[in-house]
Design a protein around this nucleic acid. Structure first.
Lengths: 219, 219
DNA sequence: GTCTATAACAAGATAGAC
DNA sequence: GTCTATCTTGTTATAGAC
């Protein structure tokens, strides 16, 4: 089950690579359509709330045809998670230990809040899963995320010790950045009720957050 | 359907009240057991992810017996949401327009982060629902929450105009308080992977957040 | 590769005895 | 009020023709 998912995740990226069993052009096209449809429904309803039929309809094909490309529903979900995780963690990876500290943190905040605006479905996909205990995400959190998190904590603590950032607990700083930036995507339904058009709100969030984290971290 | 839910939510609070059809002591006890079990499972798995059987098992009774007390699964869920919403919004309601501004905001932050520590399941119950578009919560958000939110925005803006708080967009301020405080409960699974025991982390969150919002808002 | 039909099963809800 | 047995529906997954 996991096997198929991983294979799909890796190979769907480059169909031309000369591995054992590359997917055909049609296969890649249909896989992509399924994953696009899956992002739509899984992010809106979570794993159990999503019906295979919705995915099939959104992808413009029949239910059995979907299952022709993926062995089961869980494989679609896991493939989807894996296919987005690198992109999702990229901004964290791009923090430069040799850059100007405050600038690096603010840059990270800006990237994250823009992701919330540009990729709200990806954000909710992960949010849905984590709120429910991350049963299908614990593995990649332990491998991909944990290392990145620790690396970032170290960089931040070094900067603080050097007096280049105000001293705050680095782990809490990262959590609050995640919380404040992703909130606009994850709780969009609530924001829409309270503030109207979410797009406008996310647009003005950037300035607010830059100000907040600058005040917090300026040495 | 909604009728039963509302009736249950209101009457289960005070069994002795002299309304048309008060519930018996046994009824109240069983209703309470069902709602307690429901909080456990709905907060962990969301509405569709929760099985009636899990609720029954957790409540120590049979599935049909659960349905004897509530007409269906949705009624349990709606009753549960309603039975917690007042408690959940209490800290916001308690912001005193005549109090010392910064103190009032910090007090609010502290109450919220403690709720995250003491009532993580309630937090996730709402988070789960909102991430999925709040289909069964839109109504009470429009009635209960919207008014409270607007009231709070007005209080904050007045304080800012009077120079008693630094000027920031009040709506974003509220969103960031919600985001940073609830994050510890809602994303507990992730925090556990990255920082170990969530209890310790939430405990140290209070000081971090007090510092952050003080720096942000001190005039 | 794609489809219709259907098997297999899980889950919500009901009937009716106690 | 509570339970066992069961109905009914919804949903995943498969079989097999094209």
């Amino acid at each position: 089950m996991i096997y198929y998912a991983v294979r799909a995740a890796k190979e769907s990226v480059s169909s031309t690579m000369t591995s054992k069993k590359p997917f055909s052009a049609v296969q890649n096209k249909n896989r992509a359509a399924i994953l696009a449809a899956a992002l739509e429904t899984f992010s809106a309803h979570g794993f159990r709330g999503t019906r295979l039929e919705q995915i099939a309809n959104n992808a413009g094909m029949s239910k059995p045809n979907v299952i022709y490309y993926f062995p089961n529903k869980e494989a679609i979900f896991v493939t989807l998670l894996n296919s987005h995780i690198d992109k999702w963690l990229a901004p964290l990876r791009e923090i430069d230990p040799d850059g100007e500290p405050l600038e690096q943190v603010i840059e990270y905040v800006v990237k994250k809040v823009r992701m919330s605006a540009d990729m709200p479905r990806e954000s909710r996909l992960f949010a849905n899963e984590i709120v429910q205990g991350a049963p299908r995400l614990k593995e990649s959190m332990n491998s991909d995320l944990k290392g990145l998190f620790d690396r970032t904590v170290n960089i931040l603590e070094k900067w603080m010790k050097e007096g280049k950032l105000a001293e705050v607990p680095a782990d809490h700083l990262i959590y609050s950045i995640w919380a404040t930036t992703q909130h606009y995507a994850d709780f969009e339904a609530q924001i829409e009720v309270l503030s109207g058009t979410p797009e406008k709100i996310v647009a003005s969030a950037e300035a607010y957050l830059i100000n907040m984290y600058t005040k917090l971290l300026k040495p």
